[in-house]
């Protein structure tokens, strides 16, 4: 088994999760390759967060198996498992009583208690990677802007250099412009580190833009799992085609040619003005 799964970072095998009568995830089977950036999209209650939390054992499946690096997570020590998996959640939830430095070095401190020098270097490195100046290190989360908080959250999740990063709507609470910047950052970090990312979102634009693969979930079942191109070109179900209809109709002509396409919003607006 070990040899066949070396290039598979995370695998779900017929995973079901239900609370009493209510099923939140049914028969999920899925392989995530190493270095993949999987975005998980669906409306609330679709089971995307549930599936995510099974990777670091914050939740246990009712039936089925979740494997990380080819090992059944139930056979691993949850503490060790979690320390090798970065975790960033909505609003990033920094520890309010700790400085930026203490927040970022939280996991490294859990791992190596004595080696302060190494921890300080790691903090400095990740501050640079997420684009934060070092003079913020002594600040408390309440003294940071929303965007800065998200960056600290990402740095904290990555500080121990994990192989896998789990993100649960990390940019849900920031404005449109900051979100664009953060999306660019996380894409760059993914490219530079080759880390495997699972990213939960309810924004299809974000899912298509960031993901090397997109998982569409609805009511606890997989609607489609494929590259953004596959999703856009061949929506597998009615749900998926509704989800991506706007993106399918988006026209990416350069700015100076926008009015050349008579179906673009810009051309139609121009035509309406000219008709007056």
């Amino acid at each position: 088994m070990g040899t066949t799964t070396t290039d598979t970072a995370i695998e779900y095998r017929d995973v079901c999760k239900s609370y009493g009568e209510k099923s939140v995830l049914s028969h999920l089977s899925l392989k995530v390759k190493r270095g993949e950036f999987v975005t998980m999209i669906g409306s609330s209650g679709s089971g995307k967060t549930t599936a995510l939390k099974m990777v670091n054992r914050l939740l246990e499946p009712t039936s089925g198996t979740v494997l990380v690096d080819g090992r059944d997570v139930r056979e691993t020590d949850p503490i060790q498992l979690r320390r090798n998996i970065g975790y960033a959640i909505q609003g990033s939830v920094l520890f309010p009583h700790m400085t930026v430095e203490d927040n970022i070095s939280y996991v490294p401190n859990l791992l190596n208690k004595r080696d302060h020098d190494r921890t300080r270097k790691a903090v400095h490195k990740w501050m640079g990677i997420v684009g934060l100046p070092d003079d913020l290190l002594d600040r408390y989360p309440s003294e940071l802007s929303g965007g800065q908080q998200q960056r600290v959250g990402i740095a904290r999740a990555l500080a121990a250099s994990p192989d896998i990063l789990l993100m649960d709507e990390p940019f849900g609470a920031v404005d449109e412009i900051t979100r664009g910047q953060l999306q660019a950052e996380i894409s760059r970090i993914h490219r530079e580190t080759g880390i495997t990312v699972m990213f939960v979102t309810h924004d299809i634009g974000e899912a298509l833009r960031l993901g090397t693969r997109v998982l569409v979930l609805d009511g606890g079942t997989v609607q489609q799992y494929g590259t953004p191109e596959e999703i856009l070109a061949d929506p597998a179900t009615e749900f998926v085609s509704q989800l991506v209809s706007r993106q399918r109709h988006t026209c990416d002509l350069p700015e100076d040619q926008l009015c050349a396409c008579e179906h673009s919003g810009a051309a139609r607006a121009r035509a309406a003005l000219d008709a007056r």
């Binding site: 498992l81 975790y87 909505q90 939830v93 309010p96 996991v107 859990l110 789990l166």
Partner: peptide, 25 residues
């Protein structure tokens, strides 16, 4: 509880989470 889950998800033992996060808060 979100902060507690974040601390747990990052791999703190129950004791570490208690001493470093829950008790100070």
């Amino acid at each position: 509880p979100a902060i507690m889950e974040a601390a747990k998800g990052m791999g703190g033992t129950r004791m570490q989470t208690l001493v470093r996060v829950q008790l100070p808060l």
